[in-house]
Simulated assay, not measured.
Amino acid sequence: MRAKVEPILGVMKGRFGVTRVRYKGLAKNAHHLFVSCALVNLVMATKTFI
């Protein structure tokens, strides 16, 4: 399970800068996380696996 999750977290950290949570409100932190997850899904879907 860990091997499936780590590339996704790498894309999240590398491309979208998801490293730490800033204390600017729970709603804003949740929104940033959800948008980042959606964008990672789009990035991972466009990759071609051979």
Results as ranks from 00 to 15, higher is better:
10 G>Y: 06
7 P>M: 04
45 A>T: 07
16 F>P: 01
44 M>P: 01
22 R>H: 06
25 G>C: 00
19 T>W: 05
41 N>R: 10
48 T>D: 13
49 F>A: 08
14 G>L: 11
20 R>D: 03
9 L>A: 08
47 K>L: 10
21 V>S: 03
6 E>T: 01
33 L>M: 13
26 L>S: 11
29 N>P: 00
49 F>N: 08
34 F>D: 10
6 E>H: 02
13 K>G: 14
23 Y>A: 12
7 P>R: 04
8 I>R: 08
39 L>I: 05
50 I>W: 11
19 T>Q: 08
12 M>F: 08
23 Y>F: 07
19 T>P: 00
37 C>M: 10
6 E>S: 08
15 R>M: 14
30 A>E: 12
19 T>I: 07
36 S>Y: 06
6 E>Q: 03
50 I>F: 13
7 P>L: 02
16 F>Q: 01
35 V>A: 09
46 T>S: 13
19 T>D: 06
11 V>R: 10
12 M>K: 03
46 T>I: 06
39 L>P: 01
30 A>Y: 14
28 K>H: 10
36 S>G: 13
40 V>L: 02
9 L>I: 10
3 A>H: 06
20 R>C: 04
22 R>M: 06
28 K>M: 08
26 L>H: 10
23 Y>G: 10
27 A>P: 04
12 M>W: 02
10 G>I: 06
10 G>M: 05
16 F>R: 00
32 H>R: 13
34 F>L: 15
12 M>L: 15
7 P>V: 02
49 F>V: 15
9 L>D: 04
33 L>D: 15
13 K>S: 15
16 F>S: 01
24 K>R: 14
17 G>P: 03
41 N>Y: 11
28 K>N: 14
38 A>P: 05
41 N>F: 10
3 A>N: 11
25 G>I: 02
15 R>P: 03
3 A>F: 04
33 L>E: 10
34 F>C: 15
1 M>Q: 02
16 F>C: 01
6 E>N: 02
37 C>A: 12
6 E>A: 05
20 R>A: 06
3 A>Y: 11
44 M>C: 05
38 A>S: 12
13 K>D: 11
11 V>E: 15
2 R>F: 02
47 K>T: 11
45 A>N: 12
4 K>W: 08
2 R>T: 04
16 F>V: 01
45 A>R: 05
32 H>F: 12
38 A>T: 13
5 V>Y: 03
34 F>N: 14
23 Y>C: 06
38 A>D: 08
26 L>G: 13
25 G>A: 02
23 Y>L: 11
9 L>P: 00
40 V>N: 07
37 C>E: 00
36 S>C: 12
28 K>W: 05
31 H>D: 10
32 H>D: 13
23 Y>E: 09
1 M>P: 01
11 V>K: 08
8 I>P: 01
1 M>T: 03
30 A>Q: 07
7 P>W: 04
43 V>Q: 08
19 T>N: 09
31 H>R: 12
50 I>S: 12
38 A>F: 06
